[in-house]
Design a binder for these strands. Structure first.
Lengths: 96, 96
DNA sequence: TAAACAATTTGATAGTTGTCGAACTATAAA
DNA sequence: TTTATAGTTCGACAACTATCAAATTGTTTA
């Protein structure tokens, strides 16, 4: 994983609202239901006090940083974590 | 590790120059010499094309984010990685 | 096809951040 | 105690970012 990619990921996670969005997706990925790995974004994220344009913007940033993968399903957008990138980030932080 | 702390760490690592500084310290920590865990900052970092005020500023950010620990040794500042924080960040990224 | 719903794009703005030069502080050496 | 070296603080400014309202695009349902 190159420097540029790491920095992009860090930047994507360095904003509070964007981090919350990421965690919402992360958590919805953990559920054991048949809906696993799916997150109907604008549903889950209503709590955050920001408008849809901003959410859209943040999702694009997370997506550009390869932290999440989004996909249109009908009228909705579905998101899931890009586990590869997370794993790479985790490895980077292994000191040893 | 609370959300606020994670975000602060991410933000600290999301700037190119700051990331390079962090990596310089990280790498100097890995050396097996008797100087292990020490990094005479303004020495190591001369390559980066930024002035000392900026470096000082970046070091403070890294320090405030608990990513490094700095210490004055005579005229110099010595820095080392705060392994606890790195470990915590690493754990956070373990999906499982 | 029209209406309704879901999300994106655009344009603008307020706030944040990285950077520097100049002035300052701290420590060591002469 | 003067001079030199190392680092910090301050004030300013350009560049970047988060946010929103308004307009637009894509998708489903009536």
């Amino acid at each position: 994983m190159n420097t540029k990619k790491v920095i992009k990921a860090m930047k994507a996670l360095s904003n509070k609202n964007r981090f919350e969005i990421f965690m919402a997706i992360f958590n919805s990925n953990k559920q054991t239901s048949f809906e696993k790995e799916e997150c109907f974004i604008y549903d889950t994220i209503e709590k955050l006090n920001i408008g849809t344009p901003t959410i859209s913007h943040h999702l694009k940033e997370l997506s550009n940083a390869d932290l999440i993968i989004t996909e249109r399903r009908g009228k909705n957008i579905v998101a899931r974590i890009n586990e590869d990138t997370i794993k790479e980030l985790g490895e980077l932080l292994n000191l040893d």
